[in-house]
Amino acid sequence: MATTEDVKKLAALARIEISDDELAKFTSEFDAILAYVGQLESLEIQSASAAEKPALRNVMREDSEPYAPRTFTEKLVEQFPAHEGDALVVKQIIAHD
C-alpha cells in the first residue's frame, strides 16, 4: 500500500510537486497500478543461462568527427530560456553567506 507520504517523497525525488487536491487521487491510482504490476512477484522464471548474452547492452560511440564549430550554436542559443551572447544564463547555485 502506498501512502500519501510515499507519493510525496517520490514526487520530491522526481522534482515534481503534487498539490494536496491531487495527492489522494494520485495515491489511490498508484496503489491500483502497483497491485496490478505486483503480479510479477508471483512469477517463477528460470533465469537465462550465464552463457546467454543479454539482448541489450550499452555501447559508446567513438569520440570523433565533431561538427564544425558554430554549426548549431545559433539554433541552440535560440532555445535557451535566457542567454548572454552564446552563454546560457543559470541561477547561482552556491550561496555566499
Binding site: 507519493v7 522526481a14 515534481i16 494520485f26 491510482e29 497500478i33 504490476v37
Partner: peptide, 11 residues
Amino acid sequence: TRRRILLGTFV
C-alpha cells in the same frame, strides 16, 4: 506524464 514519472521513480 507525472504519474508515470512517479511510478518509474518508485520501481
